[in-house]
Simulated scan of single mutants.
Amino acid sequence: MNNLTASDSQLMSLYRNGNEAAFEQIVKRHKSKVFTTIYLIVKDRYIAEDLLQDTFIKVVNTVKSGRYNEEGKFLPWVLRIAHNLAIDHFRKAKRYPTIVMEDGSHVFNTLSFADESAETEQIRKEVHHKLRKLIQDLPDAQKEVLIMRHYMKMSFQEIADVTQVSINTALGRMRYALINLRKSMEKYNIAYDKNLYP
């Protein structure tokens, strides 16, 4: 069988049986699409290249450990891995996002002082830590949109493209994410500035 004309599932089958050239072919075939998916999210060529390597390392590890189940859907599977690694990259980055609630108020605006004391900085860190925890507790689809929008500064069009949903769906998920986040913040008594946009 010619590797160039073989299907993805045939190549993965050959690779599972020790044919390294088959894996090289599948990487060559899908590398640019996987890279584009990552780059759309991280918007940094070097980070995207690192995450591209990580994606295929994860593919290799999954196949070698016998956890890859053949459904003939290699590309959607590898794109999902790439997508998750790109999202995780931002989750780990200790960024302070500007999260605007659905009523137009900003989370944390009350804590933005020009000359911050050590105490203010400590409060800010604690609030951000609590916020990250609340974001992690959101349903996956809502959490994903919130992270893409506020941490990654992606447009709703970009979010819709990457998550393969309509803009309306992306906007709806964002709205529910903010409503749920606000409820959680009120429940745990985390302050956000309700008076910024009266």
Rank of each mutant, 00 (worst) to 15 (best):
residue 135 I to N: 08
residue 166 S to D: 06
residue 141 A to P: 13
residue 154 M to L: 15
residue 173 R to I: 02
residue 179 I to L: 01
residue 162 V to S: 13
residue 163 T to M: 08
residue 131 L to G: 05
residue 148 M to K: 08
residue 141 A to Q: 15
residue 149 R to N: 14
residue 178 L to N: 11
residue 131 L to R: 05
residue 136 Q to W: 03
residue 164 Q to Y: 05
residue 156 F to A: 05
residue 173 R to E: 02
residue 164 Q to D: 15
residue 173 R to S: 01
residue 181 L to C: 02
residue 134 L to T: 10
residue 160 A to P: 09
residue 130 K to Q: 14
residue 154 M to I: 09
residue 148 M to T: 08
residue 126 E to G: 09
residue 152 M to N: 11
residue 148 M to R: 09
residue 153 K to M: 05
residue 142 Q to C: 08
residue 133 K to V: 15
residue 186 E to P: 00
residue 160 A to G: 08
residue 165 V to Y: 01
residue 144 E to Y: 01
residue 130 K to G: 12
residue 133 K to G: 10
residue 182 R to V: 07
residue 125 K to E: 15
residue 162 V to L: 07
residue 178 L to W: 04
residue 140 D to C: 03
residue 162 V to P: 13
residue 151 Y to P: 04
residue 145 V to K: 01
residue 171 L to E: 06
residue 128 H to Y: 14
residue 124 R to E: 15
residue 121 E to A: 04
residue 141 A to R: 12
residue 172 G to V: 07
residue 157 Q to K: 13
residue 170 A to T: 05
residue 176 Y to R: 15
residue 145 V to F: 01
residue 128 H to I: 14
residue 182 R to I: 06
residue 181 L to V: 04
residue 158 E to T: 14
residue 160 A to N: 06
residue 173 R to A: 00
residue 126 E to L: 07
residue 168 N to K: 07
residue 174 M to C: 11
residue 168 N to C: 04
residue 150 H to R: 07
residue 158 E to D: 14
residue 180 N to K: 08
residue 165 V to K: 01
residue 149 R to M: 03
residue 173 R to T: 03
residue 136 Q to I: 09
residue 153 K to V: 04
residue 179 I to S: 03
residue 165 V to T: 15
residue 123 I to F: 00
residue 182 R to P: 00
residue 122 Q to W: 10
residue 128 H to K: 12
residue 173 R to G: 03
residue 153 K to A: 12
residue 122 Q to F: 11
residue 124 R to A: 11
residue 125 K to P: 05
residue 143 K to D: 12
residue 144 E to A: 03
residue 141 A to E: 15
residue 153 K to D: 11
residue 140 D to K: 12
residue 147 I to F: 01
residue 184 S to Q: 08
residue 147 I to N: 02
residue 162 V to C: 11
residue 160 A to Q: 06
residue 125 K to T: 14
residue 127 V to G: 01
residue 162 V to K: 11
residue 177 A to Y: 01
residue 144 E to H: 06
residue 133 K to H: 15
residue 155 S to P: 07
residue 164 Q to P: 03
residue 139 P to W: 02
residue 124 R to N: 10
residue 159 I to F: 00
residue 133 K to M: 10
residue 129 H to S: 14
residue 171 L to D: 05
residue 127 V to M: 10
residue 123 I to L: 07
residue 126 E to A: 12
residue 168 N to F: 02
residue 131 L to S: 05
residue 169 T to G: 02
residue 170 A to V: 04
residue 160 A to R: 00
residue 151 Y to A: 03
residue 157 Q to M: 09
residue 173 R to P: 01
residue 175 R to C: 06
residue 184 S to M: 06
residue 121 E to Y: 01
residue 135 I to T: 09
residue 153 K to Y: 11
residue 127 V to L: 09
residue 166 S to V: 04
residue 175 R to N: 09
residue 144 E to Q: 08
residue 184 S to N: 07
residue 146 L to S: 06
residue 165 V to D: 03
residue 128 H to W: 13
residue 168 N to Q: 10
residue 182 R to M: 02
residue 182 R to H: 00
residue 157 Q to F: 04
residue 131 L to T: 10
residue 172 G to T: 10
residue 173 R to W: 01
residue 148 M to E: 09
residue 128 H to D: 14
residue 159 I to V: 13
residue 129 H to D: 13
residue 131 L to E: 06
residue 186 E to G: 00
residue 160 A to D: 07
residue 173 R to Y: 07
residue 166 S to E: 07
residue 129 H to A: 12
residue 149 R to V: 08
residue 134 L to D: 00
residue 152 M to L: 14
residue 141 A to V: 14
residue 149 R to Y: 12
residue 159 I to T: 09
residue 184 S to D: 05
residue 149 R to P: 01
residue 185 M to T: 05
